[in-house]
Write a protein that binds this DNA or RNA. Structure first.
Lengths: 146, 146
DNA sequence: CGTTGACCTTCCCACCATGTCAAAGTCTAC
DNA sequence: GTAGACTTTGACATGGTGGGAAGGTCAACG
């Protein structure tokens, strides 16, 4: 039985987050000492490590709640787990695509930017125009009309 | 001169966000009518569209503040703009790499998961183990020690 | 026994960018 | 003059995390 600090270092989940997970019902309330200190067993640490690993894989707390339920259910169907995982993969992939789109646009713009002391800049010109994927204009006299 | 609703639809920035950007000092406070309604000029819309476009490219509000300053400064050096953009590209790329790592791990795990009625599941087994990139165990008897 | 320092408790605040809702005031068109 | 669409401010929520304050507890050392 260890205090929250030990549990935190043993599980890789900060004490702050352990309390948070308890408050939102992701984990069952820890046992308390007479003084009110939380105590954690080896099994509790096991659960916390599970959560930590799932978080590292980008699962939301909501997803983790589902995974924990399945984890605890020895009679679960692996299809249920796989469904959560593949849905998560899809969501991650969508996010990746979105970010890659941004990178592609920015790289194109940056390539055309001299990056010197001169003021003309296609990056600002594009933000300025805002109507095309890549407004590769000459980049002159860009700025607010003021 | 238009009201905030018109400004919102004309710029693609919601009325809520326009007020927010004003409250955090990203944009200068709008002119007000006698009744206190905010009024926006074509130039104001121009600025809002600039912000919208930059947000679409994933720039933080903090970055946008810098970009706006440069945008307004006709004597800026394009190198300053490029620096912000390339730093942002790097950050995006790091995020993409991170997400791709998650996807790769999850895909490996999902591939090995039968996805049927049986309870053994390598995905849970991996979360359980938590000590390797891919604990491709047999996936049996996974769950809390309880 | 007393003190010190490391720990724990709860509670509040902040982030970031956005949405929702409510109460109240204003404008416009009929 | 009234209805309906707008505006204003304000509060609260999201998600997951960090920080800090104010106060209680524990263990070690003298």
């Amino acid at each position: 039985m260890m205090n929250i600090g030990k549990a935190a270092s043993a599980s890789g989940v900060s004490a702050k987050m352990i309390r948070y997970y308890e408050s939102i019902g992701l984990i069952t309330p820890a046992q308390r000492s007479d003084a009110g200190y939380r105590h954690y067993s080896a099994d509790d640490i096991h659960v916390l490590r599970f959560i930590r690993r799932a978080r590292d894989l980008g699962f939301s707390v909501h997803d983790i709640a589902g995974l924990l339920t399945l984890w605890r259910d020895q009679g679960r169907a692996s299809a249920d787990v796989k469904r959560i995982a593949t849905a998560h993969i899809t969501a991650l992939q969508r996010k990746i695509d979105e970010l890659q789109g941004m990178v592609a646009t920015l790289q194109t713009l940056a390539e055309h930017c001299h990056g010197d002391q001169r003021p003309d800049c296609p990056i600002l010109a594009d933000l300025d125009a805002a109507d095309g994927a890549c407004g590769c204009s000459d980049g002159m006299s860009v700025g607010p009309r003021s």
